[in-house]
């Protein structure tokens, strides 16, 4: 492990709760580990497991997901959906030899700025303990980039059948 290495975390926060809490932490001048880049999403239920994998594949050592507390999701049940996907995704990661602790889900409400501070610090520490996530870089596919629309149009004409 090089001395320069700093954990890189991507944090997907729902705009209604966790992102607002992170804002609050900022306004309240609470210092926390600067390792996470926050991505704001409308709801934790919007977080496709592909987002998490993409973040890890592109250099994140860990991913944090933040949503509203159970019962508080602005869209009723997005956070439960997030929980189900997250539970299954962690099983897949474990089987792939990736420590499941690299991905963490937390419910943080808009008023819990202090909790953002705590979780961000814990996450940075957790990843520091685990070290960098070393993935074998997938060889870049040698594939002519198809424009999505083109491909769709082709198949709906039946041309590509």
């Amino acid at each position: 492990m090089s001395e320069q290495w700093e954990p890189r975390v991507v944090a997907f926060f729902c705009t209604w709760c966790t992102y607002t809490a992170a804002d609050l932490a900022g306004i309240s001048r609470m210092a926390y580990a600067p390792n996470a880049r926050i991505v704001r999403v409308m709801c934790s239920g919007r977080i496709d497991p592909q987002f998490v994998l993409k973040a890890l594949a592109d250099g994140a050592d860990g991913v944090l997901i933040g949503g509203c507390h159970p019962g508080d999701c602005h869209y009723q049940s997005g956070n439960y959906k997030a929980l189900r996907r997250y539970t299954l995704l962690k099983r897949v990661l474990t089987e792939m030899g990736i420590e499941p602790e690299r991905v963490r889900l937390e419910w943080i409400s808009a008023s819990e700025g202090d909790r953002v501070q705590k979780v961000m610090n814990e996450m940075a520490e957790q990843i520091r303990r685990l070290g960098p996530l070393r993935l074998e870089r997938p060889p870049k596919p040698h594939r002519a980039a198809v424009k999505e629309r083109e491909a769709v149009a082709v198949s709906s004409q039946g041309g590509a059948r």
Binding site: P49, Q50, L53, K54, K81, R84, L88, L89, V92
Partner: peptide, 21 residues
Amino acid sequence: SRVKDYGAKALSAIASLIDSE
């Protein structure tokens, strides 16, 4: 064509259908 990772898509589809909170 819109999916980048089949496994993630499939697990997401199944997890979404589970009826439990």
